[in-house]
Design a protein around this nucleic acid. Structure first.
Lengths: 128, 128
DNA sequence: TTCCTTGCAAATCGTTTGCATAATG
DNA sequence: CATTATGCAAACGATTTGCAAGGAA
């Protein structure tokens, strides 16, 4: 894959890096538009997909029907608040051992797992 | 919620119960159509959503952009093959303890987790 | 000058919904 | 009869794609 520089892509990366709340494509679009008023949603999607493909960012699917994106590609777990829907990083050790547990009665080959936790975030659990 | 009987719904449930490969709405539609040629996709979606809401079946989101459905509502983990995309039940103990692990450095309240494993299924790992 | 990237709009995909009619209790 | 369920088609939201024009190497 042959890449060329693009100010739009840089701006998307930059925005993603300064946010730790895993924005959606639309949120990226809204914000990058402050710098590039003419950028199109298509361009945002194209770049997010490209960046995810080359491993610069990661795509997070938490089952809310919308893809979230994260500039932090280091392995870590996510928490999703049932109330406000926010996606939060969790500070906990990696559970690579559960792959082996899962492999015990399995005929194929387990290479990894995706886990996310849900409940109420700090904000929403005090309010109620 | 007030329910009335419907042959279409019965047929959907029946089909789901005899399959353990977690079919998508479209697959359900294709198959139930053998019995009810005039059934509409809308009806299939309506019933799958209804059945999932009342807990008769469960909706599985594995990040492939399509919802899968499972007549087995008992808690269990799933495996998704990277090659063929099939969704397979795993026989392993429940890992409720990881909720507490995750809660340690977290300010909110963790109520549960969703985990799925990925890799190559028995079929696809022998072929390659 | 090559060919990657963009903006725009149309298209696609999975899913939902409004409406008039049919089936159920 | 009162209501829920259906079939159909149109509507939807998120994402992708074709194309002609713009920008980087």
């Amino acid at each position: 894959m042959n890449l060329k520089h693009s100010k739009q892509r840089d701006s998307i990366m930059e925005f993603l890096r300064e946010r730790k709340d895993h924005p959606t494509a639309d949120v990226v679009y809204m914000n990058v538009r402050k710098t590039f008023p003419n950028i199109s949603l298509g361009t945002v999607y194209r770049n997010l997909t490209l960046l995810a493909d080359i491993g610069e960012i990661s795509r997070i699917r938490v089952g809310d029907g919308v893809d979230h994106f994260d500039a932090d590609t280091s392995p870590h777990y996510h928490f999703i608040c049932k109330e406000c829907g926010s996606v939060i990083d969790l500070e906990m050790e990696d559970m690579t051992d559960i792959n082996e547990t899962a492999n015990k009665n399995f005929s194929g080959l387990i290479e990894g797992h995706i886990t996310y936790f849900y409940g109420k975030c700090g904000n929403c659990s005090t309010k109620s």
